[in-house]
Design a protein around this nucleic acid. Structure first.
Lengths: 232, 232
DNA sequence: GCCCCATCTTGAACGCGTTCAACTTGATGG
DNA sequence: CCATCAAGTTGAACGCGTTCAAGATGGGGC
């Protein structure tokens, strides 16, 4: 805990130091091997050997094997944003924007399905820096939440005023749910996940719009108040 | 894969063979050490030593360190059922029954919070036999779903006819969500999880009752149809 | 030209989960 | 009483992630 040891330059730092090349070399090698053999079957020794460095050297740049994955997060998030941009530029309907962004996320993840499943256990541990809720993952997480804020702000949807500020984070949470479903999805090409998105988005769209309705306002307020309670 | 090797008698089997005592001894020792030191810090060597057997002997009875946990599932489920019984006998109101059962679940889990957090990563892996969705966990899972069927059948709540058959599994899924929240809950005594239950139950109660309402019937049908789609 | 020293690199060593060939035990039946 | 053999038990050995004391490198001040 609390060992902010010396170098291990955080993800996208400037880091003009000599070793930056080595860092990139190790990272590229690791990513390639992870994709080729899966996370568990890729050993640190293999990464080091293929990169032409000593095992210990990999640990100079990355605190652990798990930390090599953090780069995967950052890249995935960047790709997700890029893949979602056309939809955000084109659509103004809330449901269309949300579905587009969710599908874009799965598009980006699809090539890594096997790899993602094998390292998912690591990310799931509450104490892990790789947990999507951890402080270490706050960068990609906030970028991702921003994406859902944009889904909302760029849309023509009218949303209950109290619910609106909470919605981006709720949508991100729903996205986490979709990813969870996707990780467990064993159907060929993860078509079930696609069906989940196509089925759930109109539902969310409907509920969001109904949130302003007389009968449902108490429910909406109950939801918002629960969120506030849980945030402390 | 597919190595249904010789003995390793499944959880609650008859198993009158000689080694049954040793099996229980190893299991009790493991459970004690897991609780005392946490999962990660308990080594197989320590379990073996404290139980007075050789390391290999533990592997004669349990395929892996992870498999020692499966017993924990079965026990937790049994205790949950027992702890929930008074509430099921006493209450007839749906919300009261649901809240009672959920709180009973967390009551039972509370002493093992640290341990649960440390082995959660293992259970989260899609391919793991410990995953709550796996075939190996079907026993405890179905027992747990039955519990939520009973929450519903013993209650006076009137539920949409199409939604009703899906509800026990949905409630179980919600319970999984509560457990997930609980695992990540770092607040002292996991009071946030308690607040989640107390906040979410009235909400679920309200939604279930509203499910029969004119305005919401389409939404209800949409939910049911989505469930059917995802089930194939 | 030389030394200094932060930066980078090395690989043997540690403790872990897991495996396995070899050994012991004790009920069975001749 | 002994031979048999499935059931149970052993601990050295393997490959893994990780650590760390020791060494190599090379730009900057003198």
């Amino acid at each position: 805990m609390t060992d902010q040891t010396v170098p291990t330059t955080a993800a996208g730092e400037a880091a003009t130091a000599r070793g930056e090349q080595t860092r990139q070399l190790i990272l590229e090698t690791a990513m390639r091997l992870f994709r080729e053999r899966g996370y568990a079957r890729t050993t640190m020794r293999a990464i080091a050997t293929e990169a032409g460095v000593a095992v210990g050297n990999a640990y100079y740049y990355f605190q652990s094997k798990e930390h090599l994955i953090q780069e995967f997060y950052a890249r995935t998030q960047t790709e997700h944003r890029a893949a979602a941009q056309p939809v955000l530029d084109r659509e103004s309907d809330f449901a269309a924007r949300l579905a587009g962004v969710l599908h874009a996320g799965i598009d980006v993840l699809t090539p890594s399905h096997e790899f993602a499943a094998s390292f998912f256990k690591t990310a799931a541990e509450p104490t892990s820096p790789l947990s999507p809720f951890s402080a270490e993952s706050s960068g990609p997480r906030e970028a991702s939440i921003d994406l859902y804020a944009e889904v909302l702000t760029g849309s023509t949807a009218k949303v209950d005023a109290e619910l609106r500020p909470q919605l981006p984070e709720l949508l991100w949470l729903a996205y986490m749910g979709v990813v969870l479903f996707w990780v467990y999805d064993r159907s060929p090409g993860q078509t079930r996940t696609r069906r989940l998105i196509d089925g759930a988005v109109p539902l969310v769209d409907r509920l969001v719009k109904l949130s302003r309705l007389r009968v449902l306002r108490p429910v909406t307020q109950q939801v918002v108040s629960l969120i506030h309670t849980l945030r402390h």
